[in-house]
Computed example of a mutant assay.
Amino acid sequence: MRLGGRLATSVALVLGLLALTGQPAQAAYFNTYTDIADTPNTSCCTGVQGFAAGSTYLYSIKNHTNVDDVSVIYRVHKTTGERVLMTNGTNGGTTNTWLGHGNDMTIVDIDAQHHLFVVTMKASGPQLVRLRYDGTTYYHAGSYQVRLNGAAFAPSGINRVSVSGTTITFLFKSGRTIYNGSLPLRASSGTIDLTKAFDLQVEGALVNGAPVSDLGTFLTQGIFYDAAKKVLYYPLTKDNRSIVLVYRNVSPTTTGTAPAATDLSFRITSSAYSELFEIEGVGISDGRLYFNTNRANETGAHDGVHVFNGYVA
């Protein structure tokens, strides 16, 4: 009886310490992936940019690297890997001149029609473009100015938060800062005035339970926000390394600095693509985390769309 009492007391103390420290027994860490499809260079478009994951298909932009004047969009079946170069239904052909850098995009359904909202990163002209798509054809459907404190502002990330009968609300990202913005549901033009929501912790964030010494020098990419679970995924890249940090319990009302999760992280350090392994965008579909990449080795570019192995949100 005394032994049992001591054991119970010891277990209670350990559980109490775990509750106080908030440290899990083992961090969930994902560092392998499966290729779904290549997204080869086409026309002058060589740089992978924005990404969005739909219920059946994955969408990936490629643009004219360092020029940002021409883009294409690939549609990939997330299960079979079937790849189609989408058609520009407004002007014909497969290229368009509307998307600028096209760094990130998000899917929004309006009146039972599918749309992609794409951030252009343009200092002038529209900072946000809306495309309506049906099957493998897309059409220009809207252009918008984005403003912060009255000045033109070019965010590099976007994700839908909610859609009501009158309004679409978004989270936008620039660097490590998240902003709130909204549009009337059916507006094809207009101005989006952003307000700051919160910052994202990067330095000191744990990847597989340990900090990455040079994480502050990684480039930031797009974002994905799981509104139902209030979880934000944030890819960062440097050379042949890509990391996805995760932020829980964040929403448009969050302020201050959101801490990165200590018990969940993703990283690919690629020896196969030693010159470049750059995750550009991520998205959740049926609980799985999909992403697109710029990849390169001594044989050339090997860009594609992929899925992390083992993770279910």
Rank of each mutant, 00 (worst) to 15 (best):
A187P: 09
G222M: 06
G209S: 01
D193M: 11
Y225E: 05
A197H: 11
D199R: 04
T220F: 09
L171S: 06
D193T: 14
L185K: 14
T217R: 02
Q201V: 10
L171D: 10
L185G: 06
L194M: 05
S189Q: 12
S174T: 15
E203Y: 12
S213D: 12
D226N: 15
L219T: 05
G175S: 15
L219P: 03
R176V: 11
Q201A: 11
S174H: 15
T195I: 04
A197S: 15
V207E: 12
I223Q: 11
T217N: 04
R176L: 08
G190H: 09
L194W: 01
K230I: 11
T195G: 13
T220Y: 13
L183R: 03
R186S: 00
Q221K: 04
K229S: 05
S189I: 06
D226R: 10
K230L: 15
Q201H: 10
A187K: 09
I223A: 12
S188D: 10
K196F: 03
L219F: 04
A205H: 13
L171C: 13
E203P: 14
T220P: 06
T217Q: 02
P211V: 00
T177V: 15
P184Y: 07
N180W: 01
L194F: 02
D214C: 02
T220A: 07
E203Q: 15
A210G: 05
L183D: 08
V202K: 05
G216D: 00
Q221P: 04
A197W: 13
A228T: 13
G175E: 14
G222P: 10
L215T: 09
S174I: 12
R186T: 02
T220K: 08
A210I: 03
D193A: 15
G204T: 01
G175P: 10
V202W: 03
Y225Q: 12
I223G: 11
G222T: 03
V212N: 06
L194I: 02
R176Y: 08
K229T: 08
I178V: 14
N208A: 09
G209N: 03
K229R: 07
Y179I: 11
G181E: 13
D226Q: 15
D214V: 02
G216L: 00
G216P: 00
I223T: 12
R186L: 01
F224D: 02
R186I: 01
K173M: 01
S189M: 08
R176N: 12
K229N: 11
N208F: 02
V202A: 06
A228I: 08
S189V: 07
E203W: 09
Y179L: 09
P211F: 00
R176K: 09
E203T: 15
